[in-house]
């Protein structure tokens, strides 16, 4: 099993928090298997359980039930062995140290002082090495966190919403550094609530909602769903779902009272068709947000909305399944 060892193996994870408003089930029966070399995006709205799951993976929190294995180890062992490292959202830096001092200090914990120079280069911080952390831009601080995470040369790199609060240029520079790193074959799991980031940088997207995995597929599959639109209208003549589904470009049909909702990726053509050849009226076109995409993916009668994933050696068991 050694060559087949999973980078990340989460089973039946549960984690609840007590708040004044009651118990919050942050992670509620989450299963996930990540193979070595995958670049996985954890996509979901705020409160979906992304950060809690990452805390469980890193051993910063302990699950109420379920198991976490990181490269076959307990999280704390994986951390102690330097096999997993993480870029957290905010904080965690001493403002009065320079960039280089922060790296040298952290490298001393890993016993890898030689890794400081290469980490500076790969994070694009060579010019800022002598600068105090407190006077670095948000983007530079985030690239410093990335450089710190590179020091142990981890097998698994975890990033928790790494570009929150960064401007467009900073975000681009940051992802360029990550992409260069991913190209070397490192396993990467990043949380984000930007669909574009997941789309551009991950080869597998895991959608989280209410602490569960609600969809798991390739970027192409998720994009197809999330880029769709809903054309809804009131029909003056009754039509069956099958008749509606047979209209060109219709992926999926739902009914809300006297309105029909047609999911499509060719909304203009469908709207033109409905208005010119049928008695449909009160027509509305709305874009399908991520939340809507989740619902479409998880509703029991959801039609297969995306083409099957191209079969590769690793996607056969993971990326192809839309749960």
């Amino acid at each position: 099993m050694t060559t087949d060892e999973l980078a990340l193996d989460l089973r039946e994870l549960h984690k609840s928090f007590r708040t004044p408003a009651g118990t919050v089930r942050a992670v509620d029966g989450l299963d996930l298997a990540v193979r070595p070399g995958e670049v996985v995006a954890f996509l979901g709205p705020n409160g979906a359980g992304k950060t809690t799951t990452i805390d469980l993976v890193l051993g910063l929190a302990t699950p109420d039930s379920g198991t976490v294995r990181v490269l076959g180890h307990e999280p704390s062992d994986a951390i102690a062995h330097g096999r997993v490292s993480a870029v957290m959202q905010t904080g965690g830096l001493l403002k009065d140290l320079t960039v280089r001092e922060t790296l040298e200090l952290t490298a001393s914990f890993y016993g890898t002082p030689w890794a400081v120079g290469p980490a500076l280069e790969r994070a694009g911080l060579a010019d800022a090495a002598g600068r105090r952390v407190g006077s670095c831009s948000g983007g530079q601080q985030q690239r410093l966190r990335f450089a710190l995470a590179l020091l142990p040369d981890p097998d698994l790199l975890i990033l928790d919403e790494p570009t929150t609060g960064m401007d467009v240029a900073g975000r681009r520079d940051f992802w360029n550094a990550i992409r260069a790193d991913a190209a070397q074959g490192r396993t990467i799991l990043f949380a984000t609530h930007y669909l574009e980031e997941a789309d551009a940088y991950a080869d597998r997207i895991v959608l989280l909602s209410h602490g569960k995995v609600v969809a798991d597929g390739t970027a192409a599959q998720v994009r197809a769903v999330a880029s769709g639109r809903v054309v809804s209208a009131v029909l003056d003549a009754p039509a069956t779902d099958d008749e509606l589904a047979a209209l060109p470009g219709v992926d999926h049909v739902e009914r809300r009272g006297d309105r029909v909702q047609l999911h499509t990726r060719t909304s203009d053509e469908l709207a033109r068709l409905l208005l010119t050849t049928t008695g449909a009226h009160d027509l509305e076109i709305t874009s399908l947000g991520l939340e809507q995409a989740f619902l479409t993916l998880t509703s029991d009668d959801a039609a297969p909305v995306a083409p099957p994933a191209p079969a590769t050696d690793r996607s056969a068991s993971t990326a192809g399944s839309l749960r």
């Binding site: 951390i79 993480a86 957290m88 904080g91 001493l94 952290t106 914990f109």
Partner: peptide, 14 residues
């Protein structure tokens, strides 16, 4: 340092 998240950062190291 705990309030600033440095301790948390340290917990991600050996």
């Amino acid at each position: 340092e705990r309030a600033q998240g440095w301790s948390r950062q340290l917990r991600l190291t050996p």
